[in-house]
Amino acid sequence: MELLEKVVEIAREAGERLLKTYSAEARPKSRADMYAFGRRIEGGTSEYLETALRELRPEAGWVGDEMEGSDLPEGEWWATDGIEGGVNHVHGLPEWSVNITLIRDNVPVLTVVRMPVPDLTYTAVQGEGAFLDGVRLRVSEKQSLDAAVVTASQAPGNPEANRRFGDAVAALMGVSLLVRNTIPTTFPLLAVASGQYDVFWQYEPDLPGVAAGSLLVSEAGGTVTDLRGQPWRPGSPDVLIAAPGLHEAARAVLDGVAS
């Protein structure tokens, strides 16, 4: 628990640094302005996180961008996002966070998601439950897809990836209550862990977002696999995270979508 408390402190400090650059009135005038500002604020925060976390646990490795699409070597690794939801931050929206997850032998074991706006901290430790500001989280108890709010986090990709995602949305819209696509990855998973959403899937998963969200959901009672029903791990080509009463039904629908 001492480790978790220290990681929370680091996440809070990183969030405070980002809060100084945040304005609800921000409206970038161009794509270039948006990316320039985003790179500037994320770079400073990521540098702070790497320094602080390496000092906290020197034996743990650091997951760089080039490592996100494959299995990690054995041992402990920090997977972080200096500003998850940077596009939201630069547009004056509140859905942005600092994500810190400790992965051990390709399994997330500790995570902190800090949202400076509106002052929320999500935490989970393997085997100890998931919490929002100390209040335990529970996933949905729904048993039927026709009552399910299904969500994804899929950025535009190549034409074939876009087609596959569109086919999956169409298939799920035919059997569920509602389908949403939300960027970035972390926020729909926070809602699944809280029981507000019921199902989440993603092709080509974003590692920092899924690592954090998958631990929160699993510790809140949810089910986390890839689309073949195998345990999700870094390097998996896709992910399905859902309330246990809906997971298999959602997987059956997605399994029918041509890859």
Rank of each mutant, 00 (worst) to 15 (best):
G235F: 13
T223Q: 00
S214H: 08
P205G: 11
W232C: 01
L216T: 04
V224P: 01
T225L: 11
L215M: 07
S236M: 13
Q230L: 15
L227C: 14
V224S: 04
L215E: 02
A211M: 08
G229Q: 00
G229N: 00
P208Q: 06
R233M: 14
G213W: 11
Y203S: 09
V224F: 06
Y203Q: 08
D226A: 12
P208T: 04
G209Y: 05
E219N: 04
Q230W: 08
E219C: 10
G221H: 04
V210E: 05
A211E: 05
Q230R: 03
W232P: 01
G235E: 14
V217F: 03
G221A: 07
P234Y: 08
E204L: 14
Y203I: 11
A212V: 14
S218A: 14
P234M: 13
A220L: 02
W232D: 01
P234H: 07
T225N: 06
L207R: 03
G235K: 10
P237L: 15
D206G: 06
P231F: 09
A220H: 00
D226P: 03
G213E: 05
V217Y: 02
A212T: 13
E219Q: 08
V217E: 01
L216W: 04
A212L: 15
V210N: 07
P205S: 11
A212F: 15
P234V: 06
G209C: 07
G213M: 08
G229K: 00
P208C: 10
A212D: 14
G229E: 02
T225P: 10
S236R: 12
R228K: 14
A211C: 09
D206E: 11
T225V: 14
D206S: 09
S236N: 11
Y203L: 13
R233E: 09
G209L: 06
W232N: 00
P205W: 12
S214Q: 06
S236F: 10
G229T: 10
E204W: 14
L207M: 08
P234E: 08
P237K: 13
G221Q: 03
D206N: 12
T223L: 14
G222S: 07
T223W: 09
L215V: 01
T225R: 02
S236K: 10
V217N: 00
G209R: 02
L227W: 09
G221L: 09
P237M: 13
G213H: 09
S236P: 06
E219S: 07
L227H: 10
G221M: 07
S218P: 13
L215Y: 01
G222K: 02
R233W: 09
G222C: 10
P234R: 09
D206W: 09
L215R: 00
G222T: 05
T225A: 09
L215K: 00
S214P: 06
T223D: 00
Q230I: 15
R233H: 10
A220C: 01
G209W: 03
S214I: 14
V210I: 12
A212W: 15
G221Y: 07
P205Q: 12
E204F: 15
P208H: 06
E204C: 12
L207Y: 04
L207D: 02
